[in-house]
Nucleic acid binder design. Structure first.
Lengths: 170, 170
DNA sequence: AGCTTATGTCAGTGTTGTTGACATTCCAAG
DNA sequence: CTTGGAATGTCAACAACACTGACATAAGCT
């Protein structure tokens, strides 16, 4: 490690892609790419006095309509106080509807209103558009690799949540 | 677009990887993976009363010792006032040294002290370790694709900054 | 009846972004 | 040489959004 390398020591395999230098480039790629990833929605949100937190909430309510607060909490990985602040404004502004559960009346099920759907559409159009360009430029094999690395990078619980959503959608 | 698809319309090419569903999965993969990406450094920083911004500053000072505040600013994409707060605490705590420029005395050149190097090492070890596992699990072809997609996702300016750093390192 | 779960709220704090104002330094035009 | 503008960096105040801790309410469970 003193030489700043982690590379090919124990086998004939080509492990050059695991040098510290390659890893550092991966880290910086993540940093810069994430900025691009959030840039377009951020611009839209700025005009509406909303932030990234609102986007995330709206996105996952769209994905899993009727989800409970607790469920959303575990997906977003924030505290209920933090989520509540966001949900409250979204409900007040008529973008999200909160219905008392039928079976368990303690639960609140969350849905997007027509306005909420409209905002979600606007935001995800912007984000998908960038993702589409990146995917197209990189090609299908690269996209598969992209997904594979990202999935391996997730915490196990997040990976589980991601997989569950993935199955729901397709 | 009404049917929620973007897919194969205009050619014999297989463009299934560009469906809205695939794009959505890519978006969610970015979201969940970025959380894992920052989780390990965040845990270390929490004990030290530092945050992600400190990590970023230390990382890029390590990468380009002697960089000016302005230079760092353009890489990090925040206001100088925001960066300054972070730099001030790092300098007060003896992790970063700020030297007045020789040619241009308006400039400040930034360097890590021994303590600063130690923290950077600790943080980047943690982050590299996760990246290494993800890379190893995914394999070299996937890593290449991962990088290709991320690079295509960056804003042009960020992509330029990233490329410049990339060339510096290798 | 008593314990737990799900949700919401209030208060306080910390990090990190923002804008506005200002000091210092450099450089170039008059 | 002086003066005015541009570049660089610093200080102060404010907003967004995360956190913790404490508490309230309602509902389900044993």
């Amino acid at each position: 490690m003193a030489d700043g390398r982690t590379g090919p020591v124990h086998s004939g395999e080509n492990l050059l892609f695991l040098t510290d230098e390659q890893l550092r480039q991966g880290i910086e790629a993540m940093f810069f790419a994430y900025r691009g990833f959030t840039a377009d929605p951020d611009r839209i949100l700025a005009d509406l006095a909303y932030g990234r937190a609102h986007h995330r909430a709206v996105h996952f309510i769209k994905r899993a309509p009727g989800t409970t607060v607790n469920n959303l909490l575990s997906i977003l990985g924030v505290t209920k106080q933090s989520l509540n602040r966001v949900l409250r404004t979204l409900i007040e502004d008529g973008l999200v509807e909160s219905r008392v559960g039928k079976l368990d009346k303690r639960e609140r099920h969350l849905f997007l209103t027509a306005d909420g759907e409209a905002l979600e559409q606007k935001l995800s159009d912007a984000q998908r558009s960038r993702m589409r360009m990146a995917f197209r430029e990189a090609g299908p094999e690269s996209v598969a690799g992209f997904r594979k690395v990202l999935e391996a990078m997730m915490d196990p619980e997040m990976r589980y949540a991601y997989m569950r959503l993935k199955d729901t959608g397709s």
